[in-house]
Amino acid sequence: MFQKRIVICLDVRDGKTTKGVKFKGNVDIGDPVEMAARYYEQGVDELVFYDITASAERRGIMIDVVARVAERIFIPFCVGGGIRTLSDMKDVINAGAEKISINSAAVRNPSLIEEGASHFGSQCVVLGMDAAADREMPSGYRVVIDGGRKPTEWDMLAWAREAVRLGAGEIVLNSIDTDGVRNGYELNATRLVSEAVPVPVVASGGAGVPAHLADVFKEGRADAALVASMVHYGDYTVNDIKMHLDREGIPVRKTW
């Protein structure tokens, strides 16, 4: 049976995992390699690492983290943050990541999606999209970039469709309004994107309890759900989440 994926997100700054609320006020919470290995043992289905330093001179630290993670875990993982060129993508993929995620850089330079897809295949290219509720936009959501600081002219659905047309193989939809708040995912936006594109959609932003994942799989039609705070602070384990989803009749990976 095909299963819904639980994806754990680790924000990495200067080689350390960090966690912020609404993109602000970050605190260090551990070593990304050790955390990745622990979550792998706990049965997480996939991991995403966002390099939130993303300053050019520190890129090497992240590549080293990626290479060390690849030696420890044998499930797919994605790396995003600071990827602006094909050469940046190559560095991350060659270090052992399965996928790269591009967000603001793809809005500024959409051909980056095409280049990545033609070079590595669509399955390697994940579009990260930050959306904020905005009544002026046709879908009701506007694409924002630079960690939520800068609004763009893109409507959420128009950009999702364009990115898929260019070759994005998956979309991570992050709601700026719910990120880090732990009151649940933005179900409406997730369902809109999931129904608008043929590729898998990963919901992000707002998970606080396992029931939120059940909601986003059922009502939000998400294919995967990203979690961070609820597992990083020890409130829930991957297994707690999976047991809840299993009881709700949502197919999850139960042996690993």
Partner: peptide
């Protein structure tokens, strides 16, 4: 179903 199939299956 979404195509490609991306994810875990028994």
């Amino acid at each position: 179903m979404k195509i490609p199939q991306i994810g875990w299956n028994t």
